[in-house]
Nucleic acid binder design. Structure first.
Lengths: 113, 113
DNA sequence: ATAACACATGAACGCACGTTCATATGAACC
DNA sequence: GGTTCATATGAACGTGCGTTCATGTGTTAT
């Protein structure tokens, strides 16, 4: 059976529609949340909460290939979640923003409630 | 060329490893973030910030099929993001938690910085 | 300058996940 | 009880995305 046109409340819908964030804002929010939602990247963020780390140590910490870690770091970089500091051959990554800290902690308390 | 075992700093890695959240905690955090990272579900959350809505009005607001909305609401329900109140044939959805409000607003200010 | 090290990037494979179509449940009204 | 309305659920299809493998870039040291 096909779907019917149900009884909508147009005034209510329009009121809420006006209160909605702009589409491109929601897209950026969605993109950011997707970035930190990935388990591997969330573990990287968790680690970097305690200070900067090089790719090498991150790979050892997570028990992953350098390549995999580097790919995830590229995603985090392109979304301005982490920053890089180069010292010789080694690159040290750190969180570039304080909001990530907040999001992490609020999410943490939410799942622990 | 294959990857070499690079020069790790074991004491640093172990220190950070001790400070990491438990794996199941990170998994729950990841799962929650994935739920709200989806564009459609984020729009639903945005709408419900302004008060409860029925499936019918949500479908009209989002310009989607009832079925698609209902599927996403099921995901949000199973992850305790929304609650249902039934009034006759109609089911009204609302945010079940205040943390979601916080996560939404912090994320919003982050992408606007 | 050549080699070894630390990391980045490109491409391809595999799978999870959102959408869609179809069907099912459940409530209210006749 | 049968029909209509409001929502839920099942299954299959398509695609985006994370992983892996292979190769590339850049830096230091000899």
């Amino acid at each position: 059976m096909a779907y019917h046109q149900c009884t909508v409340h147009p005034e209510k819908v329009e009121e809420v529609a006006r209160g909605m964030q702009a589409p491109q804002t929601l897209d950026r929010m969605s993109a950011f949340l997707k970035v930190v939602a990935d388990p591997t990247r969330l573990r990287i963020v968790n680690a970097l909460l305690m200070g900067e780390l090089c790719v090498c140590d991150l790979a050892a910490l997570l028990g992953m290939e350098h390549s995999a870690v580097s790919h995830q770091l590229a995603v985090l970089r392109k979304n301005a979640v982490v920053s890089v500091r180069q010292a010789g051959k080694v690159k040290y990554y750190s969180l570039s923003d304080d909001h990530i800290n907040t999001v992490f902690n609020v999410t943490l308390t939410h799942v622990n409630e």
